[in-house]
């Protein structure tokens, strides 16, 4: 800071240092200029709401009347008397782990099949992306219908080949796996990103590896994976966020499996069956907006943020390592 304020003429120190300082200061302003909208946006759309949420989390707030300060009451309730927050946290954790892994592996698998196609690549690629283009609520309803245990096409097909299909969305043990299938069906976005990365792995690398006698598994492990790792990492981050924010699909699927499509304004079917699809954000929304416990919802949000931040910290470290690799390449 002080270096930049010093007039150059009277500066006794060697010229190069001053030049460097000036470059540094100029760059600081450039950076500030480039980042300015983002900084303002970050503070307004992230910083301010976060501060407010922390404040609300210490209050009783029904959205209509002014918040009333109650100290740690909401946090105490979360860990003692309120039974469903634990269920919701478990469901979301389940999704974060299983969904993230499955989504990335599945997208990678499908992409590598498609990448081997000689004909119809463009068409198949479009078809695979189609479900991702459908509005989530409508897509979910249709998917649940297709998996209807009795008359859905999936179980009908399984029955025809002599397999007894399960209850899918109606079975508390299978509802989350079914939701995972739903997500895989709509994972076209990630699939296409990975496909593009796969198609771009330089062919010569495979050829030389083959000549060295490397089998398909070793080629995949030593050539394909390292080349597309930044993209896979993007997929992991993207999927994790997706799982943490899982909302619409869970609500719609739960109601549709109970034989109704009406989810607005009541909570009867939320989490159906047996609260196995009750995700953390859904419960947060129900507490805040349906039960008017916005203070409690805010406390849930704060906890979620802390956990997300822990995830974030780990991920950023991984990302930084990956980006160092990228720059070195």
């Amino acid at each position: 800071m002080t270096a930049t304020l010093r007039p150059t003429g009277t500066d006794p120190s060697p010229a190069p240092a001053t030049g460097l300082a000036r470059v540094r200061s100029r760059r600081r302003w450039v950076v500030l200029g480039f980042m300015a909208p983002a900084i303002v946006g970050f503070l307004v759309f992230f910083g301010y709401p976060l501060v407010a949420t922390v404040y609300f989390s210490f209050t009783k707030y029904d959205l209509i009347n002014a918040p009333v300060w109650i100290g740690f009451g909401n946090y105490v309730r979360m860990f003692t008397t309120e039974p469903l927050v634990g269920t919701a946290a478990y469901n979301t954790l389940w999704l974060v782990i299983v969904l993230t892994v499955c989504r990335v592996v599945f997208a990678l698998g499908v992409a590598s099949v498609i990448s081997r196609l000689r004909r119809g690549l463009g068409l198949i690629r479009t078809l695979c992306y189609l479900p991702a283009l459908a509005p989530p609520a409508a897509a979910t309803l249709v998917f649940v219908f297709v998996f209807n245990p009795e008359f859905g096409p999936v179980n009908r097909f399984l029955r025809a080949i002599g397999i007894d299909g399960g209850l899918w969305f109606n079975d508390p043990a299978m509802s989350k796996p079914s939701l995972t299938l739903l997500v895989l069906w709509g994972s076209g976005e990630l699939m296409i990103i990975i496909l593009a990365a796969l198609l771009d792995v330089p062919q010569e690398q495979y050829e030389s590896a083959s000549l060295d006698g490397a089998g398909p598994a070793r080629r995949f492990w030593h050539i394909t994976l390292p080349s597309i790792s930044p993209v896979l990492l993007f997929g992991v981050v993207n999927s994790m966020i997706f799982a943490l924010q899982f909302f619409t699909q869970a609500v719609v699927a739960g109601a549709a499996a109970a034989g109704t499509a009406d989810v607005a304004g009541n909570t009867k079917y939320i989490g159906n069956p047996q609260n196995s699809t009750l995700t953390y954000p859904v419960w947060l929304y129900v507490q805040g907006f349906r039960y008017s416990n916005m203070g409690y919802a805010a406390a849930m949000a704060v906890l979620l943020f802390i956990v997300s931040f822990a995830f974030t910290a780990i991920l950023v470290r991984q990302l930084r390592r990956a980006s160092h690799v990228e720059e070195a390449a």
Binding site: L43, G47, V51, A52, L63, I64, A66
Partner: peptide
Amino acid sequence: SMRVLLVSVALLVASCSGAA
């Protein structure tokens, strides 16, 4: 950022009285 923080807190307080 400290200043913005203060501003947001001020806004917050305004919001509370507004809601009331």
